[in-house]
């Protein structure tokens, strides 16, 4: 019981962080049709900016300032980079963001060095929030959940309850019509791109000190966010939410369960030879590849994803 509850909490925390990361990606993709390969790099930038700001001003200002700064970077990159690439079609855009991800990683290495920086959880958030049976739940994980739920609600309210949200939604499916009505669609695109990468940066701010802030952190999450978006359905925010939680929880439980491939094969009535390397593999070892397995399965059986609105 303790194990199930603790793993569930761990899984949800991880899932929420994944959602924060991938929501921006989904937003940008559904709006602009741009698959932003550099998305995880903005997550890394968020962590590094937060580290730098927290050295000068402390953690709380960093929580606000870092995503704003990264958002501003995003706006400038869209305005002076991506918009030009846009003229030459999707392939040019894709290559542009692909190159951007390498550029950002190298810049981070040059500015902050190759090793991890000492970005720590603030003292006020160090400690135990509550104790479940005999396991402690740290305050910081609670804080991570709070921030991501807050972000989810704010995003939902923005998209469905405000005028800006309505225009954004309209530009999503009928950009020509929106433009004809006198709205500045390129500017909306620019703001969405800035907002999307700011969300990734926010995830970086709270993920960077929970885990570790180093130049490899973008590559570490770079692929998993695409899994979330593909599984959730391209362009679906709700889908990304469900997929994030699903992947977070499945992966956490897979690590925790004591099941080997032999056991799983036995379920299907297949007898594996005990001496084989394959038979000795445990679910725990397979946990890191499960999301990718999931993605391949989704692409084969339901290409539009769990909640995707369209095929591509």
């Amino acid at each position: 019981m303790e194990f199930v509850l603790v793993s569930l909490l761990n899984g949800i925390t991880y899932g929420m962080l994944l959602f924060m990361l991938s929501s921006g990606l989904t937003l940008i993709f559904s709006m602009m049709g741009v698959l932003n390969f550099a998305h995880a790099s903005f997550y890394m930038l968020g962590a590094y900016f937060a580290y730098q700001v927290s050295v000068i001003l402390g953690f709380w200002p960093a929580l606000l300032v870092a995503p704003l700064l990264v958002g501003l970077c995003g706006v400038l990159i869209e305005r002076y980079g991506l918009r030009n690439a846009h003229k030459y079609g999707h392939v040019a855009e894709l290559l542009f963001t692909f190159g951007l991800s390498f550029l950002i990683e190298e810049i981070v290495r040059l500015v902050w060095g190759k090793a991890a920086v000492d970005y720590r959880i603030p003292e006020a958030l160090n400690g135990t929030l509550f104790t479940l049976f005999s396991s402690n739940f740290p305050i910081y994980k609670g804080f991570m959940m709070l921030v991501s739920v807050g972000m989810l609600l704010a995003l939902y309210a923005l998209l469905t309850r405000t005028r800006t949200g309505l225009i954004v939604q309209a530009a999503l499916s009928r950009p020509d019509m929106v433009e004809a009505l006198g709205h500045n669609v390129p500017r909306i695109f620019m703001l969405v791109f800035g907002g999307g990468v700011a969300l990734a940066a926010l995830a970086g701010v709270i993920g960077g000190n929970a885990f570790i802030t180093e130049p490899g952190m973008a590559a570490a999450v770079g692929t998993i966010v695409f899994v979330v978006v593909v599984v959730g359905g391209l362009g679906s925010l709700a889908g990304a939410f469900v997929a994030s939680l699903l992947i977070g929880i499945v992966q956490t439980f897979a690590v925790g369960l004591n099941v080997s491939i032999t056991d799983i094969a036995a379920l299907f009535g297949v007898e594996l030879q005990a001496s084989g390397a394959m038979a000795r593999l445990t679910l725990t070892q397979l946990a890191p590849i499960l999301p990718y397995l999931f993605m391949v399965a989704i692409l084969v059986f339901r290409p539009r994803g769990l909640m995707g609105a369209r095929e591509s």
Binding site: N10, F211, A220, T252, V255, N258, A287
Partner: peptide, 17 residues
């Protein structure tokens, strides 16, 4: 248990186990 080297950033699932 064996975990991938240098890739696990959050060990809490292992600790729960």
């Amino acid at each position: 248990d064996l975990h991938p080297i240098g890739r696990v950033k959050d060990f809490s699932p292992y600790v729960a186990k």
